[in-house]
Simulated assay, not measured.
Amino acid sequence: MNTLNTKITQLKYIFIALLTVAFISCKNANTTNTSVGNLTSKMTKPDKKKYFDSSNSVVYEVKYKDDGFKLRTASSDLLWKVKLYDSKVKISDNEENLNPYEIKKMDTGESKLEKNDMTIERSTTEDARNLVYKIDEIPQDQQEILISELKEKGF
């Protein structure tokens, strides 16, 4: 009987250890590492994700729409509006989507970054979302969030 109780106690400890590992893995699953710090993200509503800094303060939020998403400040001011299409993405700093940057995937296997019909940079189709790094007016931590969100959306 003592052997059975010992085995049950051992199984309980193993079970608790596995639950702890699973919990930590789930908690870390929404972490976005940036070169300017470590931001964690959490879905706060079905259509909203918030990004937190290391002191657990909200830094950014992403609001999802059927055709894209918006990156906003912690106080919900628009930073970047992203509209998704079959073979391109538009990124603008205004609600009206005026003068957007466009990342286009072309049939040739290339992609290109344009603004006002002027090509800024070319890349491969597989690397299209990384053209966000070529948009100098977007700070690096915001670029990394946009790239991460584009990846999640399958672009």
Rank of each mutant, 00 (worst) to 15 (best):
K42H: 14
T44D: 01
T44I: 14
P46S: 15
D47R: 15
K48P: 00
K49W: 04
K49Q: 14
Y51N: 02
Y51M: 01
F52W: 00
F52Q: 00
F52K: 01
D53H: 08
S54M: 12
S54D: 00
S54C: 00
S55M: 10
N56C: 00
S57V: 06
V59D: 03
V59Y: 02
E61Y: 00
E61T: 00
E61C: 00
E61H: 00
K63Q: 13
Y64L: 11
Y64H: 14
K65S: 10
D66A: 13
D67T: 09
G68W: 07
F69H: 03
F69S: 03
L71H: 05
T73A: 10
S75M: 04
S76M: 02
S76D: 05
D77S: 08
D77G: 03
D77R: 14
L78K: 13
L79M: 13
L79Y: 09
L79K: 11
K81N: 15
K83V: 14
K83F: 14
L84W: 04
L84N: 07
D86G: 11
D86P: 02
S87L: 04
S87F: 11
K88H: 11
V89E: 03
K90L: 12
I91E: 10
I91S: 01
S92T: 05
D93E: 08
D93M: 11
E95I: 14
E96I: 04
E96D: 14
N99M: 12
P100R: 09
Y101V: 04
E102V: 11
M106E: 15
D107H: 13
D107M: 15
D107A: 15
D107F: 13
T108Q: 10
T108D: 15
G109N: 05
G109M: 04
E110Q: 12
E110L: 10
L113K: 02
L113N: 02
E114T: 15
E114Y: 10
K115S: 08
K115N: 12
N116G: 13
N116E: 12
D117G: 01
D117N: 15
